[in-house]
Design a protein around this nucleic acid. Structure first.
Lengths: 145, 145
DNA sequence: ATAGCACCTGAACTTGACTTTAGGTCAAGG
DNA sequence: CCTTGACCTAAAGTCAAGTTCAGGTGCTAT
């Protein structure tokens, strides 16, 4: 059993955030001892899932919904699985978008490297994509597809 | 030259968002014809960069700063390059975090698949990580590292 | 016994990125 | 002529996710 301060340390989250999550219903049925929150292993696992679902792009409300399904037991396994499948798909799509973003950023790094060597963008702005070095063209093409 | 409505179509962005970007200084020196915004190729390229930098996690203010560097010319190449290097690093880190998130989500998909087959989580909650099938243990380990 | 912590609450405030509203200009079509 | 549609502005409103504030409880070390 941990206090809110200990959990704050363990997860590097402000105490205010943990209280906010609690208020939003993300720790259903958390114990208290004379008013003071007691975080058990169940709440720590909840927090791990919260961080995962948040990073997957889920809102607090929807995470609350998930926590309610957990309380409801075996009858909600299929909803929970559907949720994780949907988040998985969303994250896979986000990673594809980020890969394009990354290729654009790498292209821009090359671009400004070149501009700095040349002292101006003149040569670069006269180029057409086919003039780009092959590895750079790959980045450019993926970023603009 | 394009009107705001045409650009809104081309980029699937609400007209209000384009006006907001303009107000925030993201299109420095954009032309107007009797009050009406005229988007040229320069503004379209600016928009492509805006979308890239936004996805990389940059705030509007910082994108504005970048646009000001662009106006300032060759003397800011190195700042601009440093910005893209920093965003590149940030996106690479974000992709690592997302890969962990994805492994957690895949693990949870397996978990609920198994729970549905068993009809309960009893067997799962008695398991220690070493009991997990090898590919599942890999997901679990990466997600929790 | 009092000062200092760590905890508690409800309510107000903040931030970023838009969106909506209310009111106005101007050109083209019926 | 007058309505419709695309454009304009400034200002207010929205939303999510916290954070901050003001005031309160209760243990413990000086």
């Amino acid at each position: 059993m941990y206090t809110i301060g200990q959990v704050s340390e363990m997860f590097s989250l402000p105490v205010s955030t943990l209280r906010y999550y609690d208020k939003e219903g993300l720790f259903p049925g958390m114990e208290r001892q004379s008013g003071i929150r007691k975080f058990s292993e169940r709440e720590l696992e909840a927090l791990r899932v919260i961080e995962c679902l948040k990073r997957s792009g889920l809102e607090i409300k929807e995470i609350k919904q998930f926590m309610e399904w957990c309380v409801k037991g075996a009858s909600t396994y299929s909803e929970r699985k559907k949720l994780f499948e949907a988040r998985r798909k969303a994250v896979e799509e986000e990673m594809l978008r980020l890969q394009k973003t990354l290729d654009m950023l790498k292209f821009k790094c090359w671009y400004y490297d070149t501009a700095m060597q040349d002292g101006s963008e003149d040569r670069l702005s006269d180029m057409i994509p086919d003039d780009l070095p092959p590895e750079i063209k790959k980045l450019y093409d993926n970023a603009h597809s």
